[in-house]
Design a protein around this nucleic acid. Structure first.
Lengths: 139, 139
DNA sequence: CCGTATCCGGGCAGATACTG
DNA sequence: CAGTATCTGCCCGGATACGG
């Protein structure tokens, strides 16, 4: 099945479903970090992923675990040690995510440029014609 | 640059930036529809994309246009006609998105299964040990 | 037909405090 | 160390009404 395969595009809800996880930036970061480093402890992940709160990291890891993408191993020690790594299915996610990562690397500058141009045109229009701005810029 | 390329992983903010657009389900749907059909009018898109509100479609299209991924052509007619299509850059997005789409098709069932198993375990634990549930199931 | 403006309710994320 | 619980604010997205 592919995007261009009109037949049997299931109900798209599958895509939405998965995307809501993939699209979550923390999820992608976690998968990225685990795919590079293999196995990481909670606080290692927290340090590596810039800006994530404890709460969000916990939630993200729980969801990934629930979806069978990340495995969680608790070592009954004091102090506690919990290690995270990708499951086999999680590893297969690397490839499509890598594709996205590469695309980003190649096109991010173009996007930035496109935005600048767009914004300049808009501010020009705005000056000439007050009101008529799409949802007052964002929202 | 790739996920496994530790050097020069820029600041990851680029990835977050692009992901917040890719991760948006409406954006993906729009790109998907345009990549299949080539060119579509506003209401054609609205009909094709199940459940999108007028507001969200407008906002999504504006953002995609601003990022240089979608081009918008207005025909000065009555009633007005506006056509959307992918730009060259937008077309290059097809490939990574397709990869994601394919991955979804292959793994969605496994994810559903994993969730069921996880949830069953959790309800069991819950019964035995009230309290101690990760953020009371979601949030 | 193709939008824009405005109101509004729910959910998501940060901050904080607390445990085994 | 690795979480959990709770409070709070605010952003996002739907619904609605209107306009060129």
């Amino acid at each position: 099945m592919s995007l261009t395969d009109t037949s049997k595009h299931s109900n798209c809800s599958a895509m939405s479903d998965v995307l809501s996880r993939i699209g979550d930036k923390w999820s992608v970061m976690v998968v990225g970090m685990l795919s590079r480093n293999g196995t990481l402890r909670f606080n290692e992940l927290k340090r590596l992923i810039n800006g994530v709160s404890q709460r969000m990291l916990t939630l993200t890891l729980r969801n990934l675990e629930r979806d069978g993408l990340v495995s969680r191993t608790i070592y009954p020690e004091v102090p506690p040690r919990v290690e995270y790594s990708l499951t086999e299915m999680g590893k297969t996610l690397q490839e499509p995510i890598n594709a996205l990562w590469d695309w980003t690397a190649e096109n991010h500058h173009s996007i930035i440029d496109a935005r600048d141009i767009y914004d300049q045109r808009q501010t020009a229009v705005e000056a000439a014609e007050p009101r008529k701005i799409a949802y007052a810029r964002g929202q």
